[in-house]
Design a protein around this nucleic acid. Structure first.
Length: 355
DNA sequence: AACACGTGGTA
DNA sequence: TTACCAAGTGT
């Protein structure tokens, strides 16, 4: 253990300093009970906490807000959510990304309704067994919804902790060490506020670039601040470069105006989402039309970036008559077809088709 | 233990 | 434009 790190353990960050900062600087969010109210004993609705935490996985607060409002308006309780049809949930999630979250959301809601009368477990070990709930989310629900002292470790916390203790080990190798150190700092009181406070600190003060160390409530304890290394932490291993993939989307208009659609396979990329029929996305353009017809290539190429590859899509168009059965997919009338239910990549395709 | 899994914003 | 980032989980 180097000297700076030893100093920092002896000069352990005071959770109360962070909580005092949070009392005046907490960000307002639709799913959050502000610290002044929590101090009076008010806890948030566990359904809201769970829903927001699932939505917030790898997703910005700004993106989540409108989806959260839409979901609790359409499905005010977990019972409403559990009773919804799969297509409704997937359609409402469209555009938010990481669609396995929506599939697991519904699975989880149905488990909770069927097995515990709509009540969320409080213990993180039980929470951890739920679909879509991993170590972060289990700790977040336990602490934020029930004030149980569990330690949340998300990207914010990893950054804050790596800077406080001046940890130069690269992520993801450093994950265990950072989680251990984060746990050492976690207080046993005001657990929910503390969890939200350390994440707010990471989001607004201890930012990835240009951290505002001059107004940080923990700067006095921060080893990387003394060492002048905050800006370079946490260190991360390089990510592999993105490969290109190519695909063809088929726009089939029936004479009555109906449009040929397909639901993506339940697992994998965009699993369970409404889509326009498409070829596989591979290393070259490979034709695989969903219906017989005379095809015309549309002008314009759709480019879309996924997490691990770049996609180029060609669009082919044909019209079909009423008694021509498709090889795959389903015709939806214009009333039934809602382009807002498409994932973003397919919404891009639809826009190019329409305009 | 790596890798798959979306999207929109920012430097 | 490219690269990285944002309240991670499942396999």
């Amino acid at each position: 253990m180097d000297k700076l790190m030893k100093d920092s353990i002896e000069n352990k960050p005071d959770p109360n300093k962070l909580l005092e900062w949070y009392d005046y600087n907490a960000r307002a969010m639709p799913w959050r009970v502000p610290p002044k109210k929590r101090l009076k004993g008010v806890l948030p609705n566990p359904y809201h906490v769970w829903l927001s935490e699932i939505m917030l996985q790898q997703t910005t607060v700004a993106s989540v807000k409108s989806y959260f409002i839409k979901f609790i308006t359409k499905w005010p309780t977990i019972f409403d959510l559990a009773n919804a049809k799969d297509e409704e949930i997937m359609g409402a999630w469209a555009g938010l990304g990481y669609y396995a979250r929506a599939r697991n959301l519904l699975k989880c809601a149905r488990v909770i309704v069927k097995e515990s009368d709509g009540e969320f477990p409080k213990a993180s070990e039980a929470l951890l067994k739920l679909p879509g709930v991993g170590p972060y989310t289990a700790a977040a629900i336990a602490s934020i919804a029930y004030d149980i002292p569990e330690t949340v470790v998300d990207g914010n916390v990893e950054r804050v902790i790596s800077r406080i203790f001046n940890i130069h080990t690269k992520l993801p190798k450093a994950k265990k060490e950072l989680a251990f150190l984060a746990k050492q700092l976690t207080p046993t009181i005001r657990s929910g506020d503390y969890a939200q406070a350390i994440m707010d600190l990471g989001a607004t003060i201890c930012k990835p670039t240009s951290p505002k160390c001059n107004i940080c409530p923990w700067v006095y304890y921060c080893v990387s601040n003394k060492a002048g290394t905050s800006e370079y932490l946490p260190r991360k291993s390089k990510k592999p470069i993105k490969q290109k993939r190519y695909g063809i989307v088929y726009f089939v208009e029936r004479v009555d105006g109906a449009i040929l659609t397909e639901v993506r396979p339940a697992n994998g990329l965009l699993g369970g989402m409404l889509s326009l029929p498409s070829s596989e996305w591979g290393t070259s353009f490979t034709e695989d039309p969903p219906i017989e017809g005379t095809w015309e290539l549309k002008n314009g190429l759709i480019k879309h970036t996924f997490t691990h590859f770049l996609l180029n899509l060609r669009i082919m168009h044909t019209t079909s008559d009423l008694n021509q059965p498709p090889k795959r997919g389903k015709f939806l009338s214009l009333d039934e077809f809602n382009p807002n239910n498409l994932p973003t990549v397919m919404k891009k395709v639809w826009k190019l088709i329409k305009y």
